[in-house]
Design a protein around this nucleic acid. Structure first.
Length: 739
DNA sequence: GAGCACTGC
């Protein structure tokens, strides 16, 4: 890099809005333990503040750590700052994300993902190597950032811990867009708030007429969005369009419609001397091939207007330059955990007002823009919440609770959450951890739990991996665990002919592994691809996502390394297996999935044994779909609620294998666990409880009892709401089609 | 008889 180029980037940073506040900012950090910094995008806070603190000498006795919710952000910001500080990336300025550690002994300014810092805390709860920790993008309320906030707050509630092993107290800076800053400040002991003006252009927002308060489940918005895009194209000045929809199929349908309609337009509109001739239509969603995604960022040919039709991926993860017009459907697809039925349900819901503003803001990055909302003002007022429900309140907390417990936080209910999750979410997590033997009856982490927390996996999957390792058959389970923790690897194309072809090939792959076990199919795919000479070509031929499989390979390697490290410790469990060797794989799976057992009830319907007694069916993508014979007991990886309640990734088991485990699902008294969580039980009370528990187990709850109890129940009522909404949407879609 | 948004360790 030339000297002048260096000088330019340094000089440029002086024009950022944050520059004139440099001195005051440094003072503010010096003067208080916690500081909230707010500023809209473009203020320069993410790149400049760490540099100011570095200049002010904060790195002399510790490092500066900055967290980001996303990998790409951590990497690109670190690159930019290394450039501005005129050093090689990985020396003074570095970054650390999963699978990619670009730091060294010299690193003093470290960008990382929030998940990485959480892992570091597990090894060093006092964060002794840091002098300043900066949490960035806190307004996004990612699960890990929320946990970090609570942990840092708690660290200072016992000053001894906070100053342990350090000569100078830790400073914490929390950076957020200008939302809810009062709440953040109050949470952190009424700490000072520092506001930096942003540098964005005004965006004019307009409401539409298509979606009103009664249309919260409507999908008529696809047609409306298309109409709006064409309106913009024919009547607005030059500038690209970004459309927000909820998913792949919707996007493809919208693009098809746009193609049809756009062809009918007589190009040559003169809009204030700007000739708009054509429209370039580009879909954008996460599972799209990366090279296809790249096209989105190329500027359109002269005289052509670009119209990107995207999922929420374009709201935060990707920034497209040149966007001047936003068309907002007002909906998003969101995964919500339902603790009442113990399932995750993916559903289409209205976005929050803050999310709508975020979407609109995407039009004002380079010049003034316009945002067309297809919903009415009334919909905005009545149907859209102020803020998006934070992830911590709509996700399964099993892994998080185990992490907290391993950090010595036993009272997970009264942990300082910025927004507390519902108590039943926490109770459900405690119950599951108890069932996996990760915690004991008093809520203390067991030896097994200490091992489990090391794995970046769902605890059940970890449990199965550890069981396999103790029986020396980890080679079967590690690939499966990896395959289940990456995105879906099977491609199912939209065209009916190709769909048939893909299905046929996938069935053949299942047959190669015995044809009766979806977990085994995953193992087979993993092995076949890995041993192939040209793995990417193999994937293309077999309708497998190469990108997904590649990440499964790296996950498997990482899991293997973690396991090896743990096995070198002394107390790693070793067991012997005296059953049928051919059943070893499935029995290991049962150890992790006995919470996901279902028994055939009537015909195709199975009944879950998890205490909810949900009625489920095997998903048609499973190799067990339509297999009638000898299939009375199954375990499954997950549940999908659409037209029916489906279980996916299924494996037949023998009742004998789970017979002794099933009662464990029902002997836990969650309310007792909750008192344990609160640490309100004295030893005396505990004794009483243990006796009572012992009495309860006498006569022991048998698996048969559990079955009888569950046979009587029917969950139709509990999942019917989600299902009814789905059917309603489907009906509406068909009506729209007919029109 | 099939409807998976987006992150992260």
């Amino acid at each position: 890099m030339s000297k002048s180029a260096r000088w330019d980037s340094k000089d440029e940073s002086k024009h950022l809005p944050i520059y004139q506040h440099k001195h005051n900012l440094i003072q503010a950090v010096k003067n208080s333990t916690f500081l909230v910094v707010t500023g809209e995008t473009g203020s320069g806070k993410t790149t400049q503040l760490p540099q100011y603190l570095h200049e002010a000498g904060f790195c002399k006795k510790g490092n500066i750590g900055i967290t980001q919710p996303r990998r790409v952000a951590a990497i690109t910001v670190a690159q930019r700052v290394a450039q501005e500080m005129q050093c090689t990336l990985g020396r003074e300025v570095g970054y650390q994300v999963r699978f990619d550690d670009c730091t060294s002994q010299d690193t003093v300014v470290k960008y990382m993902t929030d998940g990485c810092l959480l892992r570091e805390i597990l090894a060093d709860p006092g964060l002794s190597q840091y002098s300043v920790v900066i949490l960035d993008e806190v307004h996004e309320r990612s699960l890990n950032t929320d946990i970090l906030l609570g942990l840092l707050k708690k660290l200072f509630s016992s000053p001894a811990k906070a100053s342990k092993g350090r000569s100078r107290p830790l400073k914490v800076v929390v950076m957020s867009a200008t939302l809810e800053t009062d709440k953040l400040s109050a949470f952190l002991g009424n700490c000072p708030v520092f506001t930096i003006p942003g540098r964005t252009f005004p965006v004019t927002c307009m409401f539409g007429t298509a979606v009103g308060p009664k249309d919260t489940e409507s999908t008529g918005y696809v047609k409306e969005v298309v109409k709006m895009a064409l309106d913009v194209h024919s009547s607005e000045m030059a500038g690209d369009i970004l459309v927000f929809l909820t998913g792949q199929s919707e996007i493809e349908r919208a693009c098809d419609l746009l193609f049809e309609k756009a062809e009918a337009i007589d190009y040559r509109y003169d809009v204030q001397d700007q000739t708009v001739e054509g429209l370039l239509i580009l879909p954008l969603y996460g599972s799209m091939p990366t090279d296809q995604q790249r096209q989105i960022f190329q500027p359109p040919p002269p005289g052509i207007r670009k119209c990107v039709v995207a999922t929420n991926i374009a709201a935060t993860s990707l920034t497209i330059n040149g966007i001047k017009y936003i068309i907002d459907s007002g909906f998003v697809k969101q995964l919500n955990h339902n603790s009442r039925v113990g399932m995750d349900i993916l559903e289409v819901v209205p976005i929050s007002k803050s999310e709508a503003q975020q979407r609109a803001g995407r039009a004002g990055r380079t010049s003034a823009g316009k945002c067309f909302r297809i919903y009415t003002k009334e919909f905005w007022e009545k149907c859209m919440p102020e803020y998006t429900v934070p992830e911590i309140q709509r996700t399964s907390l099993t892994a998080v609770v185990l992490t907290l417990k391993c950090l010595g936080i036993h009272d997970v209910i009264r942990f300082p959450y910025l927004d507390s999750p519902e108590e039943r979410f926490i109770l459900e997590a405690l119950k599951q951890l108890f069932q996996f033997d990760a915690i004991d009856r008093r809520g203390r982490v067991t030896q097994l739990g200490e091992l489990m927390v090391e794995f970046p996996l769902h605890p059940g999957l970890t449990r199965a991996v550890l069981k396999a390792a103790s029986l020396s058959c980890q080679d079967m389970l590690l690939p499966v665990a990896a395959m289940l923790s990456v995105e879906n690897i099977f491609i199912r194309p939209g065209h009916p002919d190709k769909q048939k072809e893909a299905d046929k090939i996938h069935r053949a792959l299942a047959a190669k592994s015995g044809g009766m076990n979806d977990f085994a199919t995953l193992l087979t795919v993993f092995q076949l691809c890995k041993s192939s000479d040209r793995p990417s070509e193999w994937c293309r031929q077999n309708w497998i996502h190469w990108r997904a499989l590649k990440s499964a390979f790296s996950v498997e390697t990482q899991l293997r390394e973690i396991l090896l490290r743990l096995q070198q410790k002394r107390d790693f469990p070793v067991e012997t297996f005296d059953g049928n060797k051919g059943e070893l794989f499935r029995q290991c799976l049962c150890t992790g999935y006995f919470t996901n057992v279902a028994r055939r009830s009537v015909g195709k319907v199975f009944c879950t044994m998890d205490g909810h007694g949900s009625m489920v069916q095997i998903h048609p993508s499973s190799s067990l779909f339509d297999q009638e014979a000898e299939l009375n007991w199954v375990i499954f990886h997950d549940v999908l609620v659409t037209s029916r309640v489906y279980i996916r990734t299924v494996c037949p088991i023998r009742y004998d294998w789970v017979k002794d485990l099933l009662p464990k699902l029902h002997e836990v008294d969650v309310y007792e666990l909750s008192s344990v969580a609160r640490e309100e039980v004295t030893d005396e009370e505990m004794m009483k409880w243990e006796t009572r528990e012992a009495a309860k187990r006498q006569p022991e709850v048998s698996a048969e009892d559990v079955m009888k109890k569950l046979e009587k129940r029917n969950n139709e009522a509990t999942v019917s709401d989600a299902r009814a909404r789905y059917l309603q949407r489907k009906q509406q879609r068909q009506q729209n089609k007919a029109l």
